[in-house]
């Protein structure tokens, strides 16, 4: 239960789709002029993520990852099909979106009218594919957690687009410098909101301790790797020194 709550809040606030990894920015910028449409798109994103992330989790677990085909028989145990994940994930997403569109149109015309126009847009929303790819990269353990991850990152995206749409509705009455109007100011506001969201980083650690290293900041990774390399070279130098000494002694 604890890991569910933790993942839930982590995906909404700390690893927010928009503010920490910039997924779904295209539709985030294009469809955030009015709150009503933003709510429609946000709801559609939550819905599609909740369906596709668990589905792709199953695909990853039983078809793609190293040794996933073991259930077919021991002779299949050493296949690794993970290079196919992009194409399978995107195919799942495109078909699911199409299927959802047909089902919703058939059974709930009211919902279709409010969500329908956004569904085709969603097949190419990076947030959806990103959800599945991060699910794979973060090695999420159970189907339940995968569902949780899909829903909560959807909610995070929903909150982000709702907030920016509300701000953009207000900012129309402000005197923004002409070259910044529209796109420019939206970028800068999103950046400022992102800085605000960074402060959630201390939420799970209690604030006093150092926050966990975020997986996605490439620079940190590179720095770590550099340190490792430095250590390695230092070791090598030490070893070489030792061996030289040996030869001298001999």
């Amino acid at each position: 239960m604890l890991e569910h709550t933790e993942l839930f809040f982590k995906s909404i606030f700390i690893d927010n789709m928009v503010f920490s990894v910039f997924l779904g920015m295209c539709s985030y910028l294009a469809v955030s002029k009015k709150v009503a449409t933003a709510v429609g798109l946000g709801a559609a994103v939550i819905f599609v993520l909740a369906v596709t992330v668990p589905l792709n989790w199953l695909l990853d677990q039983y078809l793609l990852r190293d040794g996933a085909l073991a259930w077919l028989g021991p002779e299949y145990a050493d296949y690794n099909l993970s290079f196919l994940s992009f194409i399978l994930f995107i195919a799942t997403i495109a078909t699911m979106v199409q299927l959802v569109e047909i089902v919703v149109e058939k059974f709930s015309p009211a919902l279709y009218n409010s969500l329908g126009i956004f569904l085709p847009l969603i097949a190419v929303n990076c947030a959806i594919l990103g959800g599945s790819l991060f699910m794979q990269a973060r090695d999420i353990q159970t189907l339940g957690l995968a569902f949780n991850y899909g829903v909560s990152s959807g909610i995070g995206w929903f909150l982000a687009i709702l907030a920016i749409a509300a701000i953009r509705e207000k900012i129309r009455y402000s005197n923004v410098p002409a070259p910044l109007r529209g796109l420019g100011i939206t970028f800068i506001i999103t950046g400022l909101m992102g800085i605000g969201f960074q402060s959630f980083g201390g939420m799970l650690t209690g604030g006093d301790e150092a926050p966990e290293p975020v997986e996605n900041t490439t620079v940190q990774k590179v720095l770590e790797e550099e340190e490792e390399e430095k250590k390695k070279t230092e070791k090598e130098i030490d070893e070489k020194a030792v061996s030289y000494n040996h030869t001298i002694k001999e």
């Binding site: 503010f19 920490s20 990894v21 910039f22 910044l180 420019g184 100011i185 970028f187 800068i188 999103t190 950046g191 400022l192 909101m193 992102g194 800085i195 969201f197 960074q198 996605n216 900041t217 620079v219």
Partner: peptide
Amino acid sequence: IIPPAALIVVGI
């Protein structure tokens, strides 16, 4: 280095 800075740079 933090992610939101990229948005601000593009904005500029």
